[in-house]
Write a protein that binds this DNA or RNA. Structure first.
Lengths: 188, 188
DNA sequence: GAATTCATGTAACTTGTTACATGATTTA
DNA sequence: TAAATCATGTAACAAGTTACATGAATTC
């Protein structure tokens, strides 16, 4: 139920629509959680049924009316209960398709693998740049509506993303090197 | 469909039962893919329906009979097709509950967070040790049935896990330090 | 004129998790 | 004597993805 709790947590910052929540997922916490819009709307429904959040409608012209959700007291204590419950597993199961492809790499042309890894490096560099941007915003107190206490914790999570993406880039570069060296050796 | 292709790939190494596949997931590729036994059996069923694998039964006494699955020619070309198809996204969406908890850390006692991070460090150290063990086996050609070509690629994926876990430990240690410094400052 | 942003959702499907059921043999 | 290992699965549920539907306003 982590998605629900992520949404509850984000709604403690300010009331939001489902659409806005999606943009927070995309722009701020993408490096450790995300969800499709359709899933967000589904979970909003569930949270409202349970009384953890309430909505008020803001009429609009030309667009669908906004449904702005706020967290309730019950929602707040549910979030608190979750945060204070200790999870059994701290490390979540990983699933990474790229690594799987590399694992069976002997079946693929080395050039092909190198090309894929180069694309991966580009993706990770973009992700790094995006994180650095959030970092600057957090450091400069430019993230409107973010309290100093929260900024401290948010920076901690950001650092994890930075380290993680940097490690990935390093790995992909080293792997490309090894693949190229191996190619040269087999030519001799 | 990555799980299916992971299973197909593993079955190119040697025919296996569902139970054996699960132990390969647990012991060898846990750092980038895993699945529950029930899911493995379900997917085995699907793969057999499609003719990608076939099974033969080995009778046993006192235990349920073994169903040993082997990859077929069709399964092999399906695997090849998948390996040669270029995936749209190289970086898979991440979902990490621990980071989520840290993100909303201002709502939790710092001591509590530190305690959780310490547990996380222990988990990651164990994971690192497990990976190093696989590494030694791969380096010493002690992994029975693993060809030298495959060992090369498997080592590449192993390095990713090593870097990843090391980065996590580093991050958790630094985070604990920062949390402790912050605690001391607030006491003054 | 085509794509993106804003804004709501539903429905169908796929993937992953948890709980249950069976039962002999071996190890702690 | 309790737990782990071996070995099969089914059923129900939870979570995540993809496709579809609507439609004005804005930006390229």
């Amino acid at each position: 139920m982590s998605l629900r709790h992520a949404m509850l947590g984000l709604l403690t910052f300010k009331p939001m629509t489902g659409y806005e929540l999606k943009s927070v997922f995309d722009n701020s916490i993408n490096h450790f959680w995300n969800a499709q819009l359709s899933q967000i709307y589904r979970e909003l429904g569930g949270l409202e049924d349970k009384g953890h959040i309430v909505s008020r409608v803001e009429l609009q012209h030309g667009k669908p009316d906004k449904k702005i959700y706020s967290i309730t007291e019950e929602g707040d204590s549910e979030l608190q209960r979750w945060l204070e419950s200790s999870p059994k597993t701290l490390s979540m199961p990983m699933r990474d398709e790229l690594t799987l492809r590399v694992f069976f790499g002997s079946r693929v042309a080395a050039k092909e693998l190198i090309y894929i890894l180069q694309g991966f490096i580009r993706e990770r560099q973009e992700a790094l740049a995006a994180l650095r941007f959030i970092g600057e915003c957090l450091d400069g107190f430019m993230c409107e509506g973010t309290h100093a206490q929260d900024a401290f914790y948010q920076k901690l999570t950001l650092v994890r993303g930075l380290k993680f993406f940097a490690a990935d880039i390093e790995w992909a570069e080293e792997s490309i090197e090894q693949l190229e060296r191996r190619e040269r050796q087999s030519e001799d």
